[in-house]
Simulated assay, not measured.
Amino acid sequence: MISDTDIPVITYVTPKGGIAASAGTFILISGHVAVMTPGTTCGAAMPVTMSAPGDSPQAADQKTINFLAAHMKTIAEDRGRPGDIAARFVTENLSLNADEALEQGIIDYTADNLDSLLAKVDGLEIDVNDKNIILKTKDAEIVSIDKNLEEKVINVVSDPTVAMLLLMLGIYGLIIGFNSPGFFLPEVLGAICLILGLYGIGTFEVNLVAGFLIILGVGLLVAEVFTPTYGILGVGGVISIVLGILLMPLEPMMPIAWFSKFKVMAIGVGVIGAGLMLIIIAGIWRLRKLSPVHGVEEFANSKGVVIEELNPYGQIKIKGEIWNAVSMGQTTIPTGERVRVVARNDLELVVEPINENK
């Protein structure tokens, strides 16, 4: 975009202590005028990747390095900067401070602040797409362009770390919602997070195998919820998701520090998933220990009231329900008499009168 514009672009690394590393270096040298504040740094643009879960980020394959080095060199030479030095940002992970970058010809000026920058470039004649343009920056009005709401949202969800967190929150929300229907909040929030996460993932390059691992992990978690295996499928699902997250990003220009943070996030997702599985398994274990509430034992020794005379067949009301009943011993029990359930034959209860005097 900077290469094709007809408007002069000044790239400026500031404030003091700031860096233009990795992809930032590409942006810096793309400007028609490149400027750095003293105390800033540029370079370290060697592409990296995480080859296996748990490993430290490694240099990308030589094909990728050669391609990006050639691209960096082309951009630099197109702006009249030394292509060999620019290529070393990629091939050797070269870093330069502001003074070194100025001496090597990577940048055009150093400036302590924006006012100083504008004063230095005032009257400078530069070539923009074969057109000579003279910069008139003296007393120029500075207009800050803020991101609109859409750009802010895209900027947040396009971060691979945020995208993966949204994806996992969406998945866990849907699993919780489907396991306890009727509340709707987990399903709604889960669906929103899932859509935002999928959108964010679509903005950067991903590993297809990692995607399959995450899908497999989700399937195993769902299977654990609906066909409890005391954690076997759940643990497998969590492990599969964590491996998928670790292998997901293939962006070669992400800084090494980002990969470390991403690894911590993946482990955090695993811990949360393990905690969720522990809660589900504990709940299932408690349910398995409860006495049955249906079947033969549902009305054992429960008391009811005759609403249709048992002679010996009739009806009783018990626990708010009306049931067909038969009196034990084929005796007659009048309406309004209290009875106790002694047995159950399918949809018919066997009862006996309660002797209130006992």
Rank of each mutant, 00 (worst) to 15 (best):
F299E: 06
G273F: 06
V293L: 02
G273L: 05
L290H: 01
M254L: 15
E298G: 10
G268I: 08
P255L: 12
G268R: 09
A274G: 15
I307Q: 02
I256W: 09
G268A: 05
K261P: 09
F259K: 03
G268P: 13
V271T: 05
R288N: 11
L276Q: 11
F262A: 06
K261H: 02
R288K: 14
L287Q: 04
S291H: 10
K263H: 13
E297W: 08
E298Y: 07
M265P: 13
I284E: 07
K261E: 09
K263P: 10
N301R: 05
G270C: 05
V264H: 10
I279E: 05
F299H: 14
G270M: 03
V296N: 00
L290F: 10
A282S: 04
L287K: 00
V269E: 06
V306F: 03
G283N: 15
G273A: 00
G275F: 15
L276E: 11
I267S: 04
S260I: 15
G275Y: 13
I267N: 05
L287S: 06
E298W: 07
V306N: 01
K289M: 03
A257Y: 05
V296Q: 03
G273C: 04
A300I: 10
A257D: 12
F262T: 05
L278M: 06
K263V: 14
G283L: 15
M254I: 14
G268N: 02
H294V: 14
H294F: 06
H294P: 02
E298S: 06
I307L: 06
I256Q: 03
A257N: 06
A300P: 08
V269P: 13
L290V: 02
K289D: 10
G268W: 03
S260H: 13
A257V: 12
A266S: 06
V306M: 04
A257W: 11
I267Q: 03
R286Q: 11
R286D: 08
I281P: 00
G295K: 00
I272V: 14
L287N: 00
K261C: 06
K303D: 15
V305L: 11
